[in-house]
Design a protein around this nucleic acid. Sequence first.
DNA 1: CGGCTTTGACCAGCGC
DNA 2: GCGCTGGTCAAAGCCG
Length: 360
Amino acid sequence: MEFTSLVDTSLDLSFRLRPVLEKVPKQEVQSDFTGLSRERENMGVKNEAGDLLEELNRVSSENKKLTEMLTVVCENYNALRNQMMEYMSTQNGVAEDSSAGSRKRKAESISNISNPVNNNNNNMDVVHGRSSESSSSDEESCCKKLREEHIKAKVTIVSMKTDASDTSLIVKDGYQWRKYGQKVTRDNPCPRAYFRCSFAPGCPVKKKVQRSIEDQSIVVATYEGEHNHPQTSKPELGASTNTSTASRLNVTTIAGTTTSVPCSTTLNSSGPTITLDLTAPKTIEKRDMKMNHSTTSPIGANSIRTTTTTGGEYQNRPEFQQFLIEQMATSLTKDPSFKAALAAAISGKILQHNNQTGRW
DNA sequence: CGGCTTTGACCAGCGC
DNA sequence: GCGCTGGTCAAAGCCG
């Protein structure tokens, strides 16, 4: 799935404004407004119209910039993704993930992925033994990098704001998970929980969940692999959670307390990052809906950030996309400045229509 | 009783 | 080779 179709982050901020702007030259709109103000002989209205017009122009230009930036981002992303897909398609004999098996089998599987040539020459390896290994060290190094890239290509990171007092490490994402381990890592005192998808026996997807060291109210889930089965239930991001133990958990969000960046799009080295508020749509401000190509916006309360290296499976969910669209629409309609701009555009449209028809 | 979580032990990879 | 670290296993216990 193309990123552009993944989430329509163009926002179409001018989905009401653009037609007006395109059909009505700015100068014409301005004259319409000044004409309107003259007719009413009301300076206050004139000033207000001027402000609205100024705001409209500002929003329009901002949207234009955002659209251009997004276009560039999407083009770059799709180019990279196409390259990755080409590489993936050339990887013949990519073994099925053997995570459910022993580590030994896993190692063999990785070997098959990374070095199909050697795999096809097992006899040679047996014959030449150690010399074969040493002579191919460079090749192994290269394949190792490719293998890492292959794995990373399936990695999706989702960070979710939860109640800091909640110690559970559960993210309800529509799938059924079975916890198989927990570990305290060196760089983070908060334990990391390991989950496997338990819905389908052969599903290779694994998930690591750990609280952010910077903000322990943020739960970071790392998904590895791709599901080979449909979603088991509708995700309830930001809500009380997990599939199997939801009744025992209380991962709640703190609605209405955020001053975060609710919806921004960033681009890191590995792909686009979408940061959006999933729990407090009323707090979204239009000025925050700018793209930042160099940094990831801070995650405040009640926000969720998803980072996909290449087309992670999570954002591919129709529910998630619908959620994004609804969030964007809601945030826009809640924005006073957006309303003002929209009102100005509608007024301009009405005036244009009246001018064309010659009646009010 | 089956499925799940917990948790200590084990193993492999990596750096020194 | 050794120690550290992350990832996984598997036995024990819990829960519906």
